Simulated assay, not measured.
Amino acid sequence: MSFPKIGNLAPTFSLQNQNGEKVSLKDFKGKKNIVLYFYPKASTPGCTVQACGIKESRSEFEKLDTVVLGVSPDSPAKLTKFIDKYDLNFDLLADEDHSVAETYGVWALKKFMGKEFMGIVRTSFIINKEGRLSHVLDKVNTKTHDQDVLAILRNGI
């Protein structure tokens, strides 16, 4: 896995959200910091804990002028079900062909229960208002993810 380099412009992307609307990196440039977090699959236990933590901390992210975007290889329809089931209050993006995950270096060989397969390695990227990558969190704890990211944002990016 090779992540984009900190300090460089973040790789651009345009993906559909849960409502089928296009969301692009350029939509936020000059306006908001972005937490772009990649997760393996909607409605799985770890992904649900991580998403619900972000939901509960949304007002803190807003105070820090930051938008959170979750990215998975799920379809927009599956993302809608995930959002509805857990009353999530932020956008989830569908990367069905995993092209954005590949660009960010998070599509990799994984092992689970003795099987090998390609999938998303849970990773978060913090992108500043200028569109530059300021932090990569590659050791994500789903239970503390929201607080870990908020601590970085509070210390200034």
Score class of each variant (00 low, 15 high):
residue 48 T to Q: 06
residue 31 K to Y: 07
residue 81 K to Y: 04
residue 111 K to G: 02
residue 23 V to C: 13
residue 38 F to H: 01
residue 15 L to F: 10
residue 40 P to V: 02
residue 81 K to V: 05
residue 149 V to K: 00
residue 64 L to F: 11
residue 61 F to E: 00
residue 12 T to H: 03
residue 122 R to G: 05
residue 77 A to D: 04
residue 93 L to Q: 14
residue 93 L to Y: 12
residue 19 N to G: 11
residue 113 M to F: 02
residue 20 G to E: 08
residue 5 K to L: 11
residue 62 E to V: 13
residue 20 G to W: 00
residue 10 A to H: 04
residue 101 A to Y: 06
residue 57 S to W: 04
residue 26 K to N: 15
residue 153 L to W: 13
residue 80 T to D: 12
residue 91 D to K: 14
residue 20 G to V: 03
residue 156 G to L: 09
residue 142 T to L: 04
residue 41 K to H: 11
residue 20 G to C: 01
residue 5 K to M: 09
residue 39 Y to V: 08
residue 95 D to W: 14
residue 9 L to F: 02
residue 94 A to Q: 08
residue 10 A to D: 06
residue 54 I to Y: 04
residue 85 K to Q: 00
residue 122 R to M: 02
residue 4 P to R: 00
residue 126 I to Y: 14
residue 75 S to H: 00
residue 102 E to P: 01
residue 134 S to W: 11
residue 118 M to A: 11
residue 53 G to F: 09
residue 141 N to C: 04
residue 61 F to R: 01
residue 30 G to P: 02
residue 32 K to E: 14
residue 26 K to P: 09
residue 129 K to E: 13
residue 57 S to D: 05
residue 8 N to C: 01
residue 33 N to Q: 15
residue 73 P to E: 12
residue 116 E to H: 10
residue 115 K to W: 07
residue 34 I to R: 06
residue 106 V to D: 04
residue 88 L to G: 04
residue 77 A to I: 08
residue 55 K to F: 00
residue 19 N to S: 13
residue 98 H to W: 05
residue 154 R to Y: 00
residue 33 N to K: 10
residue 85 K to G: 02
residue 89 N to H: 05
residue 135 H to L: 07
residue 58 R to Q: 07
residue 46 G to A: 13
residue 117 F to S: 13
residue 7 G to V: 00
residue 126 I to G: 07
residue 33 N to I: 11
residue 99 S to H: 12
residue 38 F to L: 02
residue 121 V to A: 06
residue 43 S to D: 00
residue 113 M to C: 04
residue 140 V to W: 11
residue 9 L to E: 10
residue 132 R to P: 05
residue 59 S to I: 00
residue 6 I to T: 14
residue 132 R to D: 03
residue 44 T to V: 05
residue 33 N to Y: 10
residue 47 C to S: 11
residue 47 C to R: 06
residue 2 S to F: 09
residue 147 Q to S: 08
residue 117 F to M: 12
residue 117 F to R: 10
residue 120 I to W: 07
residue 27 D to Y: 06
residue 28 F to S: 04
residue 79 L to N: 14
residue 6 I to H: 03
residue 139 K to W: 03
residue 32 K to N: 13
residue 157 I to G: 07
residue 15 L to E: 10
residue 32 K to D: 11
residue 22 K to C: 07
residue 76 P to T: 07
residue 148 D to T: 08
residue 48 T to M: 06
